[in-house]
């Protein structure tokens, strides 16, 4: 399944590419390389011989085994991050042919079906690069902490069974719970931009993922104990009001999480809370 080629035409394109792709062809993979934090980056292009069902990670493994560029230059093996290899952990997220997505679920046949086609790989641009395609997503997790994206049940004794959940609420929350903190929604968001100064993180745009997670836990029968705290953060600088409604986030989310609905739902919660605070203090 091509999950991040969201428009029907590109999903159809991927399917037809897969039909015409011949195995054993040679394709080129251009990688934006960087030796370490704040080091300059450069492009290097490698040849890859395709195998059946090959994904970007297996192409990278082939390159790493013999890191020679198309100009015959010996170089270091490219570095990337990955974990689950089945699009549930989010760690392999990178920019492929100009758009952000997971590399483990990205099949070469879909993108480069012809002999000599070129695939480009870049690290995400909104996070600091650790090396090559590997980025540091600390700010993404920091922003989840800002909204206390958890259920507060820690204590010294058993609290017993929690309150009941209705199936309808469960259904809404299930979709939201699929977020894998990959960062696609942040990479594609025009309002979420690089912030090198960590002191600014708490007042910079928090991003669609954290807004949606706040909704997930506000809708949870126990999680809603922290509702006001979450909404207060989302009402403040860098909160939901920073969203400019470009709605790229929902287009690129590989889990098809209704992020723009979460943004509007949190917008409503913020509206209500600001009136309550105004009149009740």
């Amino acid at each position: 399944m091509i999950q991040t080629l969201t428009s029907t035409s590109s999903a159809a394109l991927a399917a037809s590419n897969r039909r015409i792709a011949k195995q054993g062809r040679t394709v080129q993979v251009s990688i934006k390389r960087c030796d370490g934090p704040n080091k300059p980056s450069r492009w290097e292009t490698f040849k890859v011989t395709t195998e059946r069902g090959m994904n970007v990670i297996s192409a990278l493994m082939q390159i790493a085994a013999n890191p020679t560029t198309i100009d015959g230059k010996q170089t270091t093996p490219p570095v990337w991050d990955s974990g689950c290899l089945e699009e549930v952990c989010g760690s392999c997220t990178m920019v492929i042919n100009g758009k952000v997505r997971q590399s483990c679920s990205c099949l070469l046949d879909d993108y480069v079906p012809n002999e000599g086609d070129t695939l480009t790989l870049e690290p995400m641009s909104k996070f600091p690069v650790i090396r090559d395609l590997w980025v540091d997503r600390e700010r993404l997790f920091h922003n989840l902490k800002r909204v206390k994206a958890w259920v507060p049940i820690d204590g010294t004794y058993s609290l017993g069974a929690g309150p009941r959940e209705t199936p309808a609420k469960q259904e809404t929350r299930y979709k939201l719970s699929e977020c894998m903190s990959c960062g696609c929604c942040l990479e594609a968001c025009p309002q979420f931009n690089v912030e090198e100064d960590k002191a600014q993180w708490d007042t910079s745009f928090i991003g669609a993922h954290a807004i949606s997670q706040a909704r997930l836990f506000n809708e949870h029968e126990t999680g809603k104990q922290l509702k006001d705290e979450r909404i207060d953060v989302l009402m403040g600088p860098g909160g939901v009001n920073d969203c400019g409604n470009a709605q790229n986030c929902v287009k690129v989310c590989p889990k098809h999480i209704p992020l723009t609905e979460s943004i509007a739902a949190i917008g409503r919660a913020v509206t209500i809370r600001s009136f309550v605070k105004f009149f009740k203090g």
Partner: peptide
């Protein structure tokens, strides 16, 4: 002030909504 806080990226993400966002600014 708000418009300057964003960085348009319609070149990469040429979605309709993204264009509306850019044109709004």
């Amino acid at each position: 002030y708000y418009a300057r806080s964003g960085k348009s990226n319609t070149a990469r993400y040429a979605y309709q909504g993204n264009w509306r966002y850019r044109m709004q600014r």
